[in-house]
Design a protein around this nucleic acid. Structure first.
Lengths: 206, 206
DNA sequence: ATGAGGATGTGACATTTGTCATCTATGAAT
DNA sequence: ATTCATAGATGACAAATGTCACATCCTCAT
């Protein structure tokens, strides 16, 4: 089984290579350190599996995978991720990745690779809770799972309603600056970048 | 790794046992042929993994698994299924199963077991298309109701994926200014004000 | 060839957004 | 009464966003 490794942290990709090659079934046929390199190397090497970091500078693993899958829909892309990447993970499956592995969890990489190799999809427990179709059976309310205050949740719903900071401030009788501050800490808490991602997050979790 | 096999077809469970025990890491600590037996044996043996057929007389694998998981939420239940069982599969995940394996696909059983053993969930491609949240991720037909070009729709999906203009431009190999222009006219056409409202619009219409 | 139309790019600009450090008021808790 | 925490406000700032007018190309039909 030929594997291509893409991770912009050289240390990670090097140790991955060692770990994987400890298994006689696996050969690492290439190592790259950027999304662009991932695309090029994949096209050139056509490995059985592409093992790629999700978060990379310039071109994220997602972008690279999207390009690759557009060209070769049968590509088997397995993502590496830290556990906070939940939003990316959803995206990963939407574009057709075969799974992901938590970086913390090195001993699970080889079994996961093999499972993907024989055509399975592989992922951890966390993602289940992120799936709108499954969430209903477990938790009644989703946003309160995170340590968000009442007010923060209220503000999120307004953002998800498409209101600007000014409009929210007028609705809640607070200053616009205060709203900005609130949103800033909400984004921090949820590990998101901007209000658009927040609105998306809201719809995916409600 | 201790495995309990439950299948009401004795032929299947016997051959499974042989297949699994060909791997030195695996011991089959029990074999049963009904859902009820599955519950009892599981309680008694506490195997690492319960490999169980979904369709069985009297008590289905699902019912058995539900009982087991109620008693031991950490139980690792892996279902065997024929490919036509799709409705059951959804249910399987809702009750907390770790995955399923197609019966046609014997060579994938061992990798799948190992992946589950180290904490992954495992399933095949088909289920993806059954998930409401992923079903429409590729081609939002509803958007074409509006007079949007192919490219405009593509850009909308990226906005709804939470990407910034810069990221979109890099993905599509266009300049950031062009993306801004596109979004500007999209907003005009759809009578929206900003990208957040656009993302919301997307999720409400797909 | 020529001109229309589409797709793409550029530069300028006003706004909005997100971040941060800091401040004030209020209301517990001691 | 003093301390402390919390909600809210402010101002400054950089970055992202949306708008617009205009400039290039390219292709295609005439």
């Amino acid at each position: 089984m030929n594997v291509l490794i893409i991770d912009d942290d050289q240390l990670v990709s090097a140790s991955l290579k060692i770990i994987l090659e400890s298994d006689p079934m696996i050969q690492v046929t290439g190592v790259g350190n950027s999304g662009a390199a991932g695309v090029n190397l994949y096209m050139k090497l056509k490995p059985d599996i592409l093992l790629m970091d999700i978060r990379m500078d310039h071109m994220t693993g997602l972008d690279a995978a999207e390009l690759i899958l557009k060209d070769d829909p049968n590509a088997k892309v397995l993502f590496l991720t830290t556990f906070s990447d939940n939003e990316y993970i959803i995206k990963a499956f939407q574009i057709g990745a075969k799974g992901y592995i938590l970086k913390q969890n090195y001993e699970s990489i080889i079994p996961a690779l093999k499972a993907v190799f024989v055509g399975q999809r592989v992922f951890g427990d966390e993602i289940i809770s992120k799936m709108p179709s499954f969430k209903s059976s477990r938790q009644p309310q989703t946003l309160t799972r995170f340590d968000l205050s009442e007010k923060e949740v209220e503000i999120i719903t307004h953002v998800a309603g498409g209101l600007s900071n000014k409009e929210i401030s007028e609705t809640l009788f607070l200053s616009e600056g205060t709203i900005r501050n609130y949103i800033s800490v909400i984004l921090e808490k949820l590990n998101l970048r901007d209000r658009t991602q927040l609105a998306i997050f809201y719809y995916k979790n409600t």
